[in-house]
Write a protein that binds this DNA or RNA. Structure first.
Lengths: 320, 320
DNA sequence: ATAATTGATGAAACCAGTTTCATATCAAGC
DNA sequence: GCTTGATATGAAACTGGTTTCATCAATTAT
């Protein structure tokens, strides 16, 4: 493989001039520029990117931390990030954490090691104190309300969107409302639980812990929820389900067991994924791809720390 | 940030000795080893990975080329690759191609530039002649039968598995069989079409081009298929659907439009994804995660070119 | 007693680029 | 005629590691 010295020799110029041509610097005469280009073509030259990275202290790689790749929500999020990465000539390094803290730390370490230029955390595990130790090494952006932190964020106001959904169900005469959530901890979940409890308090409804179903990520978790419902004496009349996938699982299961939706059980999804449209699930639309794009853009802005709140939209269909 | 020279000075040794400690080389006395370790701790030292990469000519990164991330099949495949990557201390660089050849070429170029150590192509777009130009730069592995090529592969025998499925449907008295496929081109699709045509020929059935539905990737594509079916005069009595997702879309749509499954239309999926289990879809099980793991392992074996055929298994449920 | 091997160490070359600095030419401004 | 600034170029320093090679002491083999 030819290196920059070979090209310089071939073109009869200095390495500096070759470097100038490579980086489109001004002050290179047209003849020498042409000579360099010709030499590069002749020897099928490719700059060694690792040397470029070492010199520039930059990698054109952005890390993406998500719990699972195989999930429509995170799939769409990565898609949005990837779209923007392509436009900016960046590549993505993927960290699938399975919600293991160690995996997230590996990503932070790569940032520290300057192996990636920035880090997008799709779903955070580490405490803020841990994250803070790394903010000096490069931009870290998160997909949750981080206005109080020194990291950029694009987020849904989950308190508000949960409140909107709950009010909607309430207007439809539902008082026994339960909800399905992914992780029980995590700031997004905390916001949602807060909205839930405030709603209950406002309407003088007692909090029933068995109405909260956690670990709901995938289609098949919906089946588990219906299984649980059938064992309960008192069941909710409506479920707020923080993933259309899970909502679809619940709906499919209900149909198979002849539970009438929405009469016996109202279901409200989240995201407005294609499956929600096809199965006519009432849902809250979240522009996940757009969130991904925004997150990537923020990961490139190393100087400013911005916060981008994304609005949601209620989509009325047939399951409420 | 401290560098290796600072550490050497601090520990009172040469950079060589520090490098030896970093790489666990023999021939370093216990005292010096300890002094170096202490100095590294004191100055919170981290080696600059780009310098390491430049020196060693290795990146510990493997590229993964897939058309979409947001798809259960490729999600699972990446999950398998990611699992094995974690165990081997490798990171993944993701290339979402949307089936654009240029994206795949970018990945090949990164291999050539030594920016990644190897490349897993989940679904190939480029011609073999193009791929061949890059095999000298690092291991390339594909997820299709490549026994005739100079690249490693882990693959399903799609001819055989399609034949198995077709024979099964035939035993169940189906003669009007159609199939749904993702891309029309691509070697996996070609194998399947060959099996389909051979089956028809064997049973003296005419080939009906309207019985082949292409561009079937997602849940919502199933709706399109049912829409098409309702406009057709002569419809198939059974459909072989190369993705459980699409099969689930078709089944859901059929239920909504009161098309009886399997009496009016038999549906046979592929993959055995969770959704197939929940919706009781008869399917051909494909161990996608295991395929992903195998692909990654092959991407590390730079010396040998191996071919790994994976067996499928028919799962009988209620849609045939 | 001498030669060969093993252990321990560091100087310097090397990986392949970028960037700083010094220098030279030429035209414009005063 | 002299200063200033834009254009053009290359030598050398720099990024931060790894690896080769030379050196020397302490064993071990002949």
């Amino acid at each position: 493989m030819a290196n920059i010295k070979d090209i310089a020799k071939l073109a009869g110029v200095s390495v500096t001039t070759v470097s100038r041509v490579l980086n489109n610097h001004p002050y290179v005469s047209e003849e020498k520029k042409e000579a360099v280009r010709y030499a590069m073509e002749q020897s099928n030259y490719r700059p060694n990117i690792n040397a470029v990275h070492l010199s520039k202290g930059k990698t054109n790689l952005i890390g993406v931390v998500i719990p699972f790749i195989n999930h429509p929500y995170f799939g769409l999020l990565v898609e949005g990030i990837a779209n923007e990465a392509v436009s900016n000539n960046y590549k993505l390094v993927l960290f699938q954490t399975n919600y293991e803290e160690e995996r997230e730390l590996e990503a932070l370490l790569m940032l520290k090691n300057k192996q990636i230029d920035g880090l997008v955390i799709g779903s955070r595990i580490c405490h803020w104190e841990v994250i803070k130790e790394y903010i000096d090494y490069g931009p870290i952006v998160v997909c949750e309300d981080a206005r109080e932190q020194q990291v950029a964020s694009t987020y849904i106001n989950h308190y508000e969107s949960f409140s909107i959904a709950l009010e909607y169900l309430h207007r439809k005469a539902h008082n026994e409302i339960g909800y399905c959530i992914g992780r029980k901890s995590g700031s997004n979940s905390t916001q949602r639980d807060l909205a839930y409890r405030d709603f209950l308090a406002k309407n003088n409804i007692d909090y029933n812990p068995s109405f909260v179903f956690s670990n709901c990520f995938k289609f098949e978790d919906g089946v588990r929820v219906v299984d649980l419902l059938t064992t309960m004496k008192k069941t909710p009349s409506a479920l707020l389900v923080t993933s259309d996938q899970v909502a679809a699982g619940i709906l499919t299961c209900c149909r198979e067991r002849n539970i009438q939706v929405p009469h016996q059980l109202a279901i409200m999804g989240f995201d407005n994924q294609p499956i929600a449209k096809i199965m006519n699930i009432t849902t809250l639309e979240i522009p996940i791809v757009e969130i991904g794009r925004s997150l990537f853009r923020q990961a490139l802005e190393s100087e400013t720390v911005t916060h981008n709140e994304i609005a949601v939209k209620l989509i009325e269909r047939l399951t409420v």
